[in-house]
Design a protein around this nucleic acid. Structure first.
Lengths: 109, 109
DNA sequence: CTTCCATTTCAAATCAGGTTGAAATATATC
DNA sequence: GATATATTTCAACCTGATTTGAAATGGAAG
């Protein structure tokens, strides 16, 4: 992942509406949610939701496909993993103190 | 870490000058770098560097202390760890696919 | 083909953040 | 105290992101 890509992902994540959409999509994985459902779940107008979703799609954080009239958005876990990895590896040089946080965050045996 | 804190850290990281400063400070850890050295290393004017450094300090990503005329900035590894953990745990619910990225990023035995 | 529903696009207004350069502060030296 | 260096602060300006609401598009159903 390049610095430019990392910056694009980080600024996409750095917005309350988008971060909440992301959480909603994680909770709904692997099924995904329609644009309308997402809009309601983060209390945004359709046009605002569409704006933010297209930004997230542009950054590769979500994918979307149309079924009839509805557009379903799905989380792209690997894209978020790539951002985390960039922070850990490229920025922090895998510093033990930073890694310790990830280890602690992995209670799954 | 609260959502507001995570958003503050993410938007602080989402800027080329600041991300480069962060990398420089990681490389210089645990010693730190002076404001002037940092400014040169990212090719920024003193005033621009000071502006970005104060944002990073405000977000808790760096600390600073004065020695004579120079102000030395140091990376706060735990703060970055906290952001990563937030993404991993609070956003992605420790999803295996995302965790796999961190594991791969940890070649240190 | 008209109508309805879901979503996106668009232009205008607003807002937040970044850059610039000059001035101010802090500290040391003469 | 005067001067020099390191850094920060400030105000003005610029730029890009976000919001808003209306209009347009895509698709299904009568």
């Amino acid at each position: 992942m390049t610095e430019a890509e990392a910056l694009a992902s980080l600024s996409t994540l750095a917005h309350a509406t988008r971060l909440r959409m992301l959480k909603a999509l994680v909770a709904a994985a692997p099924g995904g949610l329609t644009a309308g459902t997402l809009a309601k779940s983060v209390d945004a107008t359709p046009s605002r939701a569409s704006f933010h979703l297209s930004k997230m799609a542009e950054a590769g954080l979500v994918t979307h496909d149309r079924a009839a009239r509805e557009v379903t958005y799905r989380i792209e876990f690997q894209a978020i993993g790539a951002v985390i990895r960039y922070l850990l590896e490229d920025c922090c040089a895998n510093h033990p103190t930073v890694q310790a946080c990830c280890v602690a965050a992995a209670p799954k045996s």
